[in-house]
Design a protein around this nucleic acid. Structure first.
Length: 300
DNA sequence: CAAAATTCCTGACTGC
DNA sequence: TGCAGTCAGGAATTTT
């Protein structure tokens, strides 16, 4: 399931591959993927004829700014893929729900077996007053001087982006204190931090040496600092490796290639295997309907 | 049949 | 007592 590092990898490649391209035709094979729109036609009409100006990201959402005030938003859910192909002749994988054909040739395909993901065009609002917020998220090139949360109201609920929105660890510590929640649940809460899911929360917590069930308002200053560093560094490292592709998962980059970070995993999906630091067995527990992997010795 | 995990939703519970 | 926040559980989904 694509989380921040996988989506960021996609963003970087999309920036090179589709910026400047003009949408010629949009074909929707499964309306569920564009469910926010009254109809597939409505979605197509907002996209056809538009040129992609820049590609941004907020948490797990991709944001393709168009040459008007609109933004094409893509969320991959847990099984979504975006694939760039040079020719329409290339065989379409099963569950190809949306195909965007460019006037310059080539296609961008949206494939999603489980259809938890979605695409939609946020019309933006007519540019009137200027942005007041200080935090801008990437992709905000000359085309979009408006902060993403304002340009795309559908994403206004999202918290800070751990990679784009840099802050001091002291401020982070304050934010932890302001909540009283299990630390893993909080990391995965998209309204707190946008982009972290089950896999990376486990990796971050191992790196920080903290158990998943520590309370956010019960961390010492040192622990909060360690957590902040672990969050930023783990995500950056995963981006360098172009994300994680697990055996049973489907994550592929724009070109259909797998990521490389799974080989670096310390705990995720390593139940029963020796901890790379202390050799104790990695433990797996179920919390909130999903698995948590951790080392009982290294994480306190 | 169960398991995987995303977002959204709801109902239950908790601390102040 | 009430309120806000937390947390578990379910839905939608398909493949292994």
């Amino acid at each position: 399931m694509p989380e921040l590092p996988e989506v960021e990898t996609l963003r970087q490649d999309l920036a090179k591959e589709v910026v400047g391209r003009k949408v010629k035709v949009v074909a929707v094979a499964n309306g569920r993927s564009v469910r926010r729109h009254p109809s597939a036609k409505h979605f197509r009409a907002l996209l056809e004829g538009r040129t992609i100006k820049s590609v941004g990201r907020l948490g797990k959402y991709l944001l393709l700014s168009l040459d008007n005030t609109a933004t094409l938003v893509v969320h991959l859910g847990m099984s979504g893929q975006l694939l760039r192909v040079k020719s329409a002749k290339e065989a379409k994988p099963k569950h190809t729900h949306v195909v965007i054909t460019f006037t310059q040739g080539g296609e961008l395909r949206y494939v999603d077996p489980r259809t938890f993901g979605e695409m939609f065009v946020s019309p933006g609002r007519p540019e009137n007053e200027k942005p007041a917020s200080s935090t801008s998220v990437n992709g905000a090139g000359p085309a979009s001087t408006v902060p993403i949360r304002q340009a795309v109201p559908e994403l206004a609920h999202l918290g800070f982006d751990p990679v784009e929105d840099v802050m001091s660890w002291e401020r982070f510590a304050l934010m932890l204190r302001a909540r009283r929640a299990g630390i893993k649940a909080l990391l995965m809460d998209q309204q707190f931090a946008a982009g972290i899911g089950n896999l990376y929360s486990d990796e971050i917590l191992f790196q920080a040496g903290l158990r998943y069930d520590r309370q956010s308002d019960g961390l010492s200053a040192t622990e909060a600092r360690r957590l902040y560093r672990a969050m930023v560094e783990t995500l950056a490292e995963a981006i360098k490796h172009r994300g994680s592709s697990l055996a049973d998962e489907q994550y592929r980059d724009l070109f259909g290639e797998v990521g490389d970070y799974q080989g670096q995993h310390q705990v995720y999906d390593r139940e029963g295997q020796p901890c790379r630091r202390c050799r104790n067995s990695i433990v797996r527990v179920k919390t909130g309907g999903r698995s948590t992997f951790y080392c009982e010795h290294c994480q306190v």
